[in-house]
Write a protein that binds this DNA or RNA. Structure first.
Length: 305
RNA sequence: AGGAGUGUAGUUCAAGGGCAGAAUAGCGGUCUCCAAAACCGUUGAUGGGGGUUCGAAUCCCUCCACUCCUG
């Protein structure tokens, strides 16, 4: 008989209880969790990125958690390739897999794929960053020459976007916009997306509370150990940067914690902007697990959802 | 309940008779290989009441709130 290949995606803003729900679903279905999170892939960042705790890790097996070094130039493209490879094995073993994550771009890459663009080139990027710092107009001119269409619509105040576009143009010899299809790839597995929808105020309360718990769990010591590596992209992360300011003496510990709370709230807001655009997501209020389970059971029976 | 001072946006502070402004928070949005990143946009205020004046956040009276001092 043909093997089933189902991916259940649990998404939602930070602090919404994705990890708990993912573990509950995976346990109920006798399967495993595949993380879809741009920061939980790193080792040494367990507390600040709210990786699953020991009990959760013991309850169900997790993949793509703490499996990369903070010094790696890890990108969304790496994630897509690695996750798809893994899924082949996991579908073979379990049929259904639960993906849990808060990184919208990563979830999109996993579910819908990215176009075949040249990979990020760290050396070239550093060179372009230096050029931008010295003369943004020069790079904007280059972009207007090599990709007029993208030049018109890109946010020209955003160095990351401009630099990425030029990077692709240079590496491929083709305009960036010409390489983008703006279509979803067809995956050879079924996808069900579930989102956790908290009232904003309640979510913010939970976020504040969770930051306090991270503090009690030893976030400061974890950040202290990572401080020497603060220049890595992995450490450009809410929960660490703010404490680095404290270590530098430019902020008090209390200020740093307040900033972690604020930046977590802002992050949650940006996540929601991303997820609310995705009309494939089935939203559930917290505490409605039974409704989620029945939706999932329908999905697994092959009902169109 | 004696004296003095201060009340401007959620907060910190401008404007001292002539269009109430900034920072920050908040809110909304963008997103195809750094995305927990990097950006873009935006709501919102003169404590209440009266008076002077062509015109009051600004001057006067009063009430209220807060702060300090004295007892």
């Amino acid at each position: 008989m043909a093997h089933t290949r189902n991916l259940i995606v649990v998404c939602g803003p930070t602090g919404s209880g994705k990890t708990d729900l993912g573990v509950a679903l995976a346990a109920r279905l006798g399967t495993v969790v595949l993380s879809a999170d741009s920061r939980q892939v790193y080792r040494g960042m367990a507390i600040g990125t709210a990786q699953p705790d020991a009990a959760q890790l013991a309850a169900v097996k997790h993949y793509m958690v703490a499996n990369h070094d903070i010094g790696e130039h890890y990108t969304c493209g790496h994630y897509e390739r690695e996750a798809l490879d893994l899924l082949e094995t996991l579908f073979e073993a379990y049929g259904t897999v639960v993906a849990v994550g808060g990184s919208g771009l990563y979830i999109n890459a996993l579910c819908h794929g990215m176009d075949k663009l040249p990979e990020a080139d760290h050396a070239l990027r550093q060179q372009l960053e230096a050029a931008w710092a010295q003369d943004p107009a020069g790079l904007l001119d280059e972009l207007r020459q090599s990709d007029p269409a993208y030049y018109e619509k890109v946010d020209r105040a955003n160095p990351q976007r401009v630099i990425r576009a030029i990077e692709v143009c240079r590496l491929s010899g083709t305009p960036y916009s010409a390489l983008r299809s703006h279509t979803y790839k067809k995956r050879d597995f079924n996808i069900l997306k579930i989102g956790i929808d908290f009232p904003r105020e309640e979510l913010y309360r939970r976020i504040d509370l969770r930051v306090e718990r991270m503090k009690e769990a030893g976030l400061e010591a974890e950040a202290r150990a990572l401080y020497p590596y603060r220049a890595y992209n992995a450490l450009r992360t809410v929960g660490y940067r703010e404490l680095f300011d404290y270590f530098d003496g430019t902020a008090t510990l209390g200020d740093a914690v307040d900033m972690i709370k604020r930046n977590s709230r802002r992050y949650a807001k940006r996540q929601m902007t991303w997820f609310t655009k995705d009309d494939a997501i089935h939203w559930f209020a917290p505490g409605r697990e039974e409704n989620i389970f029945s939706l999932v059971e329908g999905f697994l029976r092959g009902e169109h959802v």
